[in-house]
Design a protein around this nucleic acid. Sequence first.
DNA 1: ATAGTTCATCGCAAATTTACGATGAAGCAA
DNA 2: TTGCTTCATCGTAAATTTGCGATGAACTAT
Lengths: 101, 101
Amino acid sequence: MQRTTTIIDYSLQEEKIARYAKALSHPIRIRILQFLDRQSCCFTGDFTEEIPMAQSTISQHLKELKEAGLIQGDVMPPRIKYCINQAAWAEAKKYFNEFFQ
Amino acid sequence: MQRTTTIIDYSLQEEKIARYAKALSHPIRIRILQFLDRQSCCFTGDFTEEIPMAQSTISQHLKELKEAGLIQGDVMPPRIKYCINQAAWAEAKKYFNEFFQ
DNA sequence: ATAGTTCATCGCAAATTTACGATGAAGCAA
DNA sequence: TTGCTTCATCGTAAATTTGCGATGAACTAT
């Protein structure tokens, strides 16, 4: 990326919106979130049945959503139960609403 | 990316949200859009004064926003006047509202 | 102990994104 | 014509994203 000079202080709002938007920037992740929203909670296996992609790829998208804070995973051996993180979801909603007026 | 097997039909909604989200996934582009929203319209030079990045980099981000449809550029030699594309903006707003309920 | 299930993570490859400086097109002014 | 301004685009480099198969960790059941 050849980052030579630029250092920019982004506002919290700029950072937050960009971060959440990045998490939403792939159609598979939109599908995962909407699926989660309907089911309330899912195991990884539910997604691999629903979405025709390699299990490892889906796991990677779940990780991206988790790192953005939008979902959380609770260990229930041998499975992992994913739910939407309602607090983060509400925050994202607030920031996007505000952004679009 | 080694795309060997997977072909997924995304819904229009999935595609639209992901596409707009991608455009919003960089804090500089958030800043550009908010700046545009306040000023109603700007020339490229206004951004280069406001944002401490190379002119070519800013131009590239404007291009990304233009390709997503969120802004439009009108040639006013020797400058280019950028405005928010209100129709696309309204559409993005609608999709995000819908997505967040 | 062995075998099966569920899932994250690793290693790799290709594509895309991000950033820069340099260049050049388009137009204006002298 | 020559020179100036404004801006997109090109070329390049580094980082990140996306996707896969393979592996292995963690747990359950036999």
